[in-house]
């Protein structure tokens, strides 16, 4: 039996310790679609050394920018980011839940002005990190349903 089911990547980003079941949502929110030009590997339901199960995503030839990292933190706050350069881990860090969230998810309140055709980006302040709770800057609606409202 082979120890690794997916081979190491030369350059790119490995998102590890994704909350189990969230890998496909991570791909969606960082904008990886069918037309991606490099190899993407998705590992779902992998045993975690920390106990329990996790998902892993490997994206070759792409380093995530901070705005994309904020999005990952919203649906998987314990995820770690490994930036790989020439097969080595050049940078490693845990994603951080930002203090405010701008333009990456919509307000769960259908009556909120940000859900109408107005030239305004939805904006939220983080009320609590565990459980992750966001408050709309415009209508004050509190939401914990993060992944359902990602744009």
């Amino acid at each position: 039996m082979k120890e690794f089911k997916v081979t190491p990547i030369r350059n790119g980003t490995v998102i590890d310790h994704i909350q189990v079941g969230m890998a496909l949502k991570v791909l969606r929110i960082i904008g990886v679609k069918e037309d991606v030009s490099s190899t993407v590997s998705v590992l779902m339901h992998v045993p975690s050394k920390k106990g329990g199960w996790k998902d892993i995503v490997k994206i070759e030839d792409r380093e995530l920018d901070p705005k994309e990292l904020d999005k990952v933190a919203l649906i998987s706050p314990d995820a770690t980011i490994n930036i790989i350069r020439d097969y080595n881990v050049a940078e490693k860090f845990v994603v951080e839940v930002p203090k405010s969230v701008l333009g990456i998810m919509k307000c769960s309140n259908p009556g909120c002005i940000t859900n109408k055709s107005e030239p305004v980006e939805p904006e939220f302040v983080v009320e609590s990190k565990k459980p992750l709770t966001l408050k709309c800057v415009y209508c004050d609606r509190i939401t914990t349903e993060i992944s359902e409202n990602l744009i």
Binding site: V137, Y138, D140
Partner: peptide, 13 residues
Amino acid sequence: RHPQEGAARMSAH
């Protein structure tokens, strides 16, 4: 006065 919640906050911007 506006029917949408958050309309005043947005207008203030």
